[in-house]
């Protein structure tokens, strides 16, 4: 058991390191000092001496490998570097931006879970087969709706037309409600799809028929038996869902004009501010890795069969 958790942890660290390296290669090595070209803009009025000082401070004169070692070293020390655009420490920017995104994530994740649960129940227990088949198609169709469009329509209808929720001049949780709920729709789609197909596989098993033959009601079978069996495969995509929420935040915060991590990422791309972009990617990868590790560690608690094989494997 301990061996299993340790091996999972090692795997998680490897993925984290790999993703860090990949983002470094993509963002910092390839263009060389192309990101620093902007400092040569005459309008900034920097002297060649100043430019070379800046270059040195970013380590741009070093070889790619030395730069990599430098960035890796300071990241491990918890130093995320400085924004190339503004010179502000990246950690300070992240600190200012994360509460907005966190609120957005909480609302959209909570909304997505409730939406997925309600929808999956309906799709599994609806009375007629054609109706169930039709409901079964909805998550796939919902994931075909672009989230930015959905949010624009939500603003037009909910705020402008029905005047239910204001979008201008709000802050805190109030500002997270409409964007969070809009984002919940595309987030819930893969959750529902994975859960539904897992649930259908479970429901095709003979023990479901045996339960029905004992007089169990469909709702009871769904919640007491199908749910615990179909949950593990659904949980395996939670890391992915976290990444989707963060990616969704880029679009959502742009549409609603919120100052969160997504907005920060969007500006970082626009300004080629690689230090900021890499920091945000690192956050999302770290979240992905931590969530996946947690799910893996929890899996044996949900499924007794895993518990045994791992106990056997570690013995």
């Amino acid at each position: 058991m301990i061996r299993y958790i340790l091996s999972r942890a090692a795997q998680a660290l490897l993925v984290l390191w790999g993703a860090f390296t990949l983002s470094f290669v993509l963002l910092q090595v390839m263009p060389g000092d192309a990101v620093l070209i902007k400092f040569q803009d005459p309008e900034l009025g920097l002297s060649p001496q100043q430019i070379s000082d800046i270059r040195a401070s970013y380590g741009a004169d070093e070889s790619a490998f030395v730069q990599y070692a430098h960035v890796l070293g300071r990241t491990l020390a918890g130093q995320l570097g400085y924004s190339i655009e503004t010179g502000v420490p990246v950690s300070r920017m992240l600190h200012a931006a994360y509460p907005t995104t966190l609120r957005l994530a909480v609302v959209s994740f909570g909304g997505a879970i409730m939406l997925a649960a309600a929808f999956a129940t309906a799709a599994l227990l609806a009375p007629l087969r054609p109706l169930r088949a039709a409901l079964r198609l909805v998550p796939g169709l919902a994931s075909g709706i672009p989230v930015f469009w959905l949010e624009i329509v939500a603003i037009q209808l909910v705020s402008f037309h029905w005047k239910l929720v204001p979008v201008v001049g709000v802050s805190g949780w109030a500002a997270a409600v409409l964007p969070g709920l809009a984002l919940a729709i595309p987030i819930s789609a893969p959750l529902t799809q994975v859960f539904l197909s897992a649930a259908e596989r479970v429901m095709a098993q003979p023990f479901i028929d045996v339960l029905r033959a004992r007089g169990a009601s469909p709702l009871r079978i769904l919640y007491a038996h199908v749910l615990p069996n179909a949950l593990p495969p659904t949980l395996t995509i939670s890391g992915l869902v976290f990444g989707e929420i963060l990616a969704g935040a880029v679009v959502t915060e742009t549409v609603f004009g919120l100052d969160g991590l997504g907005q920060l990422a969007q500006q970082a791309v626009a300004n080629q501010d690689v230090a900021v972009l890499q920091a945000i990617i690192l956050i999302s990868v770290a979240g992905f890795v931590v969530i996946n590790f947690t799910v893996d560690a929890l899996h044996p608690l949900i499924d007794p069969r895993i518990r045994r094989t791992q106990a056997g494997g570690a013995a």
Binding site: L22, G243, L246, V250, A265, S284, F288, V289
Partner: peptide, 16 residues
């Protein structure tokens, strides 16, 4: 390793 990065972030990095 690649899958740990959300697709949108990966695409945006490539575009950068």
């Amino acid at each position: 390793m690649v899958l740990a990065i959300p697709e949108l972030f990966l695409s945006l990095s490539i575009i950068t």
